[in-house]
C-alpha cells in the first residue's frame, strides 16, 4: 500500500484544546510539518508565549521552553547565541509580540538575531477573554473597547511587518492568512522559508499570520474567516515585506508580491 498522507511526527498525540475554528491549531501543524520536512526536528528548540498558545509545549514534539509574556525574542536570543547550530523560534500572539513585548521584538529584529518568530495576529487578547490588542481594528469591539476601538481613545492598530521592514536587521518578513487552503499553503511555504534562512545563518525572520479568534470575536468560525478576509486583510495587506535580494530576483514574475490595499 502506498502512503499518500501521514500525520506529521512534528506534533504530539495530545488533543489540542484550542476553540473550534481557531487559527492556532492550524499554524502549530504547519510549524511542525516544516521542521520535520527540513529534517531538523531533533535540532529545534521552540519558545512558547503567554497567551492561548501557552500550551504549545504540549503539542509541538520538540524541546520547548515557556517564558514570560512578550519576552520570546529575548529568550530565543539566549538560546540561539549559545546553540547557534539549532533552529530556534518564538511563537507569539499580538498582545505578546506587539504590546508588552514590542521592545524585545524590535531589538531582536534590529540585531538581526538569527531566530524566527511565528506571529499570530488575531487582533485580540484571546487568553484573557477578549480585551483590546495593539492590532485590534478601528471600530472593532473588545471587552475593553465595548463601543469599538476609536482613534481618540486608543490610537491606531500597529502593522508589525511594515514597522519591522523599516529596519535594516530583518532578512525575511511575510504576512499570510490561514482563512482558506491557498492561504494555508502559502503560510506553510513562508514558515519553511523563514526556517531555511535561519538554518543558512542569514538573520532575523518573521512570519505574521492573520488568524481568527471566533470565541473572543463572538462569531461563528465561518463568520470569523469572513472577518479575516474582509476586515483584516485590507488593513494588514498580505505579502512579503522583506526578503533577500538574490531570492527576490530569482523568483518568477508571476509570484511577485502583490500587496492588496
Amino acid at each position: 500500500m502506498k502512503i499518500v498522507f501521514e500525520q506529521t511526527k512534528g506534533l504530539t498525540d495530545i488533543p489540542m484544546r484550542y476553540c473550534p475554528g481557531c487559527g492556532h491549531g492550524v499554524v502549530h501543524r504547519l510549524v511542525a510539518e516544516c521542521y520535520e520536512e527540513l529534517g531538523v526536528q531533533e535540532n529545534t528548540i521552540g519558545v512558547a508565549p503567554v497567551g492561548c498558545s501557552v500550551f504549545a509545549d504540549e503539542y509541538l514534539n520538540i524541546d520547548m521552553i515557556q517564558g514570560a509574556h512578550g519576552r520570546g525574542p529575548a529568550i530565543a536570543t539566549g538560546i540561539k547565541r549559545n546553540l547557534p547550530d539549532k533552529l530556534a523560534f518564538s511563537y507569539q500572539g499580538d498582545g505578546d509580540l506587539a504590546s508588552i513585548g514590542a521592545a524585545e521584538t524590535l531589538h531582536a529584529a534590529a540585531r538581526s538575531e538569527n531566530i524566527t518568530i511565528i506571529f499570530i495576529n488575531n487582533a485580540i487578547y484571546g487568553m484573557t477573554g477578549g480585551q483590546m490588542a495593539p492590532t485590534t481594528l478601528l471600530g472593532m469591539r473588545s471587552t475593553t473597547s465595548p463601543a469599538g476601538r476609536t482613534v481618540a481613545a486608543n490610537g491606531y492598530p500597529i502593522r508589525v511587518c511594515e514597522l519591522l521592514a523599516a529596519l535594516d536587521g530583518p532578512v525575511y518578513l511575510e504576512r499570510t492568512t490561514v482563512d482558506k487552503p491557498a492561504g494555508v499553503v502559502k503560510t506553510r511555504k513562508a514558515i519553511k522559508r523563514a526556517f531555511q534562512y535561519q538554518l543558512e545563518g542569514r538573520g532575523f525572520t518573521l512570519v505574521e499570520i492573520l488568524s481568527q479568534c471566533p470565541t473572543d470575536w463572538g462569531m461563528t468560525p465561518l463568520q470569523s474567516l469572513e472577518r479575516v478576509r474582509n476586515e483584516m486583510t485590507p488593513y494588514f495587506p498580505l505579502g512579503i515585506y522583506k526578503e533577500p535580494e538574490d531570492d527576490k530576483k530569482a523568483r518568477p514574475k508571476k509570484d511577485a508580491v502583490k500587496k492588496e490595499s
Binding site: 528548540i45 517564558g67 529568550i75 539566549g78 521592545a103 524585545e104 524590535l106
Partner: peptide, 20 residues
C-alpha cells in the same frame, strides 16, 4: 556578551541561555 535593550530583556536572555 550582550547589551540588552532593557533589564527585562536581559533577564529573559538569561532565561533562554540558562535553559540550555
Amino acid at each position: 556578551f550582550l547589551q540588552a535593550e532593557s533589564e527585562v530583556s536581559a533577564i529573559n536572555m538569561l532565561f533562554g541561555a540558562a535553559a540550555v
